[in-house]
Amino acid sequence: MKSGLFILHLRGSTNGAKVVSKLISERYSSENDIIDIATSYGPSNGKLSAQKVVESILFCLQVIYKSLVKKYTFIYYSITPHGFAFYRDVASLLIIKSLTAKKITLHFHVEIKNNFLVKALKKINFFKEIFAICINQSQKERLVLLTGIPAEHIRVIPNRILPCKNIDFLSKHENISQKIRRHRKIILCISNFLEGKGIEDTVSAYLEIRNNHPSSYLIIAGNIVDEAYFKKIMKKIDLIDPNRERIKVFINLKGKAKEKALKHASVLLFPSKLPETFGLVNLEALEAGLAIISYKTPSSHYFIDEKVNGYTADSVEGLAKHLEYILSQPSAFESMMRSSLEKSKKFDTEIFFKELESALSL
């Protein structure tokens, strides 16, 4: 008999929840039941659709059946705390709580919004007996405040999702040596085109240092989530570099093309102004051996050891200042890139699985 139930996100666009869900499915599916909660095969806007309603009904029926028939020792739920999916998840949790007294653990990959439903659930102590996993300490504090989940019921577990045993670190260190020897230096910004992601600050920071470093180039890559914001960014770039000689923009960069961009880049700019719970691209940058310059986010401390493998900043001027320094100091630049690569080893999947199993009492 299967001992536990994992409710996961196995479809849709790539994000932390999907990557973690796939790892969990591959690791635990032989001894536990798996339900795919995702109602989208691509990027989702969180709005209601007929497909989502039908799939959500089928999902709830699966939950009812399995909760009645199976005697699970635990239930792990990768929750989506916003949009239509949150209402579906709450309905499912009401069913689960009414049918089983087993331990329920919710995994919050993104921030929960303090809307009327969250307030109502807190008022009736809905979350009182719930356990939770979140990504960083500040997210934990907000969960306690907004939901009433007891602090002792919440584990902070970063997305340690790098299979380090399969990574050739010697080759990556050699690639860093090659990048240092190259005259051309590539600055990379990978982010969705969305208000708050700070892509305009990336362009402004690069503009400040561009003349001092004629061999530097900026690559911006991401999906268009907000069409108006994308047009605003492109208009700004057209004024600065109309012939795209120094600034390149790529849409929907993924797979081999994304790997190539990370391989040839030397530094990642991550100027997001949003409360990023993790920021998957930072982890990709560590694995590729990139120095990282980022605005301070709830998760920036996971990826950046200040002055060791990068810097945090709080303004365009700060981004430009740090970028100017590392481009002007080859030895410090090389040290930062190698430090990033070594830091990536702290995100080994085996560490994540140990932390997860401890949280689920496996």
Rank of each mutant, 00 (worst) to 15 (best):
G222R: 11
I180K: 02
K97I: 03
I149M: 08
P158C: 07
E200C: 06
I157H: 05
P150M: 03
Q137W: 04
I176A: 13
Y217A: 02
I209K: 14
A101S: 13
I96S: 05
R155D: 13
R210C: 02
K122H: 09
N166Q: 11
I104Q: 04
E129R: 00
A205L: 01
D201S: 11
E208R: 15
K119T: 08
G196C: 05
A221W: 12
I133S: 01
V118I: 14
R182L: 12
E129W: 01
L145Y: 07
H213I: 09
F169Q: 01
I224C: 01
L218G: 09
K103Y: 07
K97H: 02
C189R: 10
H107L: 04
F116H: 06
K123Q: 14
K122F: 03
S215M: 08
I224P: 03
N125F: 04
R210Q: 09
R184W: 06
L170A: 12
C164K: 11
D201R: 12
I135H: 14
G198N: 10
S98Y: 11
K123T: 03
I219K: 01
R210E: 08
L99R: 01
L162Q: 04
G196S: 07
L162W: 03
I180W: 05
N192W: 13
N114A: 02
E141R: 15
R184T: 14
I161P: 00
E200W: 10
K140L: 07
K122W: 05
F126L: 09
I167R: 08
N166R: 13
K165E: 14
Q137P: 12
E111R: 15
I149R: 12
L106Q: 07
K179Q: 13
S171W: 00
K123L: 11
E174T: 15
N159W: 05
F108I: 02
I135M: 15
G198H: 07
S204H: 08
T105L: 01
Q137S: 13
F193M: 01
E200I: 13
I157T: 09
E129H: 04
E195D: 07
K102F: 03
F127L: 01
D201H: 06
S216M: 00
L188C: 05
S216N: 00
K119L: 00
I176F: 15
S138L: 15
G148L: 06
E129Q: 05
I167C: 13
A221Y: 06
L218R: 12
K165W: 11
P163A: 10
E208Q: 10
K128Q: 12
I157L: 05
R155T: 06
R182C: 10
F108Q: 07
R181H: 12
V118M: 11
Q178R: 15
L99T: 03
V156Y: 09
I199L: 04
I112E: 05
I209M: 09
R182Q: 15
V118C: 13
